[in-house]
Computed example of a mutant assay.
Amino acid sequence: MSSRWDEVKRIPIDEVAQRLGVPLSRRAGMRCPFPDHKDKNPSFSIDRKKNLCFCHGCGRGGSVIDFASIITGKSSSEVVSWLSQSIRQSKTSSHQYSRIAPAEEPETEDAQCVANPAIFDHFASLCPPAERGQQYLLNRGISEHTQKSFRIGFIGNSDDVLKRLLSKYGTAALVSCGLIFPDKAPELVFPSRSLLVPFVTGGEIVYFQSRSISNSTRRWMGLNGVRKLIFNQDAVSQAKNIYICEGVTDTLSATEMGLTAIGLTGASTTFSTNLLRSMRSKTAYIIPDNDEAGKAMEARVTALFRRAGIQFVVQRVPHGKDLNDYLVWRKQK
């Protein structure tokens, strides 16, 4: 047992903080990240050589186990169990401490492009729903009514779509809004034979994700250089109870079950100050996947909600890996 604890304590504190979604400054002092300490003066210090931390304001700190326990509100044993499982999983990859991302797609770098609702609306009109895409979602338990309400489209041939966009807007405009890659021959970031999911805020399309139904290596893709957004976040104003899901498919699944839900689309997805403020009068039901990524998502979001003063409940999926698995199983019963 002691060897497992010692192994966990050797995980760099920056790695643990990254998994929890807690930014740590490289400066000598920073504001305390502990959710119940409203630190007005920088009082938190980190000794990276010894892998220890301490807050001179609230008097707490210690090893990475202590750090994660205070952030998440979980016991030391629970933290050790979570992090040791993460170690076992990451040892199978090329990096010993690879981040566990609660995401369906690779993260993009810091936002370099900006959304263009006018171009996005035209792009969506070039990708209407298609029977192949509709049937894929029907097989996942997502009805045509739900598909229509979220304006799910389908990219048949990405080259044909790109030609029509280029003829109207030109290369520079498409690069600036993240629809094509820069510094290479024009290529749509979304592959052919993919579902197209628009993210609508205030009645305007501000982001897209695609879900390939034929390419296993590029399953979920987002706009290039545009910061990821929370899916269906306008729904927060519509209900007293909000369900927090992992990704688009689980959000559609929650909607299919009559729940008001939003979806996190990656580890870099952030809650805006306004969104957090609007959630303080509601109860958030966090629905993590039943895997390591789900545990990381749960830890990150619960820590954030504690800091923001949001009432929340963690709700487990009773069957399957995720909410969509549960929906399919329930409909087949």
Rank of each mutant, 00 (worst) to 15 (best):
M1S: 10
S3W: 12
K9D: 08
P12E: 08
P12A: 08
V16P: 00
L20E: 00
V22D: 06
S25F: 01
R27Y: 01
F34E: 05
D39K: 01
P42M: 00
F44C: 02
F44D: 00
F54A: 06
C55T: 02
H56V: 14
G59P: 06
V64W: 08
K74E: 14
S75Y: 11
V80I: 13
L83H: 01
S86F: 09
I87D: 03
Q89E: 13
S90L: 07
S94I: 15
Y97N: 10
A103S: 14
A103P: 02
D110Y: 09
I119G: 04
A124W: 00
C127H: 03
L137R: 03
N139P: 09
I142D: 07
E144W: 13
H145K: 15
S149W: 08
I152N: 13
F154R: 02
N157Y: 13
N157T: 13
K163Y: 11
R164D: 15
L165R: 01
L174V: 03
I180Y: 00
L188M: 12
V189C: 05
S192C: 07
L196R: 06
L196Q: 04
P198A: 02
V206S: 04
S210V: 01
R211S: 03
I213D: 03
K228H: 09
I230W: 00
F231K: 03
S237R: 14
A239Y: 10
K240T: 11
E246P: 04
G247I: 00
V248M: 09
D250P: 04
E256K: 12
T260G: 01
G263P: 00
A267E: 02
A267T: 09
S268F: 05
T273F: 12
L276I: 06
T283Q: 15
Y285T: 08
I287P: 06
P288Q: 05
D289H: 05
D289C: 06
G294W: 07
K295W: 15
V301D: 09
L304A: 05
G309S: 06
I310G: 11
F312V: 02
V314A: 00
D322I: 06
L327G: 12
W329R: 11
